[in-house]
């Protein structure tokens, strides 16, 4: 893996420096997925979210992103208002990557960068950091699962936001890119970022962990 050079790491200081969950509970389809989940995450920290299939890892990430309502408890982003934090302070990369098969990688990366407030130069830097430059003119449907995931991850670099919510980010990646993305995550944390990642494999950069039980 080439060292990620000139990566956008200038995070806005006025944004999220803290994520806290207090006694969070989520109910989906009449079933209580989890309750009493608490977490304090500060700038520069990464948390590995583990638990068996169906224990609510994805729902917890979506609850932090404001897409799923909490049954009980609360989610705070430090001094930042929750709707500002969700609108401008976090990235979500999940199984459904939101990439359109018929559009080129460049079109998708450029659109999402603009949508999330990134600069044009950051798009090129993100593509370089994830080694996507030769793939940019291909339609998304031509990309392999791992390349698609790298494109989804590149969106986070194309518009710097402090909190990364990742749903099994490493699963389709090969050994080289697991290491490579590990380096990118480390860089994000060193720049004051926060990471909450649902994983089955160990997360190389995790400083704390949270286990959900089925």
């Amino acid at each position: 893996m080439r060292a990620p050079k000139n990566l956008p790491k200038s995070l806005d200081d006025s944004l999220i420096t803290q994520l806290s969950l207090k006694d969070a509970a989520v109910r989906r389809g009449g079933r209580l997925l989890f309750e009493g989940v608490s977490l304090e995450l500060a700038a520069g920290e990464a948390c590995a979210l583990t638990g068996p299939n169906g224990s609510g890892k994805t729902s917890l990430l979506r609850a932090v992103a404001g897409l799923v309502r909490l049954e009980a408890g609360e989610i705070g982003f430090g001094a930042v208002d929750a709707s500002d934090a969700r609108g401008e302070g976090l990235h979500l990369v999940g199984h459904a990557d939101g990439l359109k098969a018929a559009r080129t990688a460049r079109e998708e990366l450029t659109f999402w960068s603009r949508w999330t407030g990134g600069a044009q130069a950051a798009v090129q830097e993100a593509a370089e950091a994830l080694d996507l430059v030769p793939l940019l003119d291909l339609e998304v449907r031509r990309l392999s699962a791992g390349q698609r995931r790298r494109l989804a991850l590149a969106r986070m670099l194309a518009a710097p936001r402090p909190l990364w919510l990742l749903d099994e980010p490493l699963s389709p990646l090969d050994a080289r890119w697991r290491e490579g993305f590990g380096a990118l995550m480390k860089r994000h944390l060193d720049g004051g970022g926060l990471i909450l990642a649902a994983v089955h494999d160990p997360l190389p950069v995790a400083t704390r962990s949270l286990e959900l039980r089925a």
Binding site: G87, E88, D97
Partner: peptide
């Protein structure tokens, strides 16, 4: 429907718009 199925609708929400 397409944005809903492929997750783009989630990401469209994560914006100040």
């Amino acid at each position: 429907e397409r944005d809903y199925e492929d997750g783009a609708l989630d990401l469209l929400l994560l914006s100040p718009v």
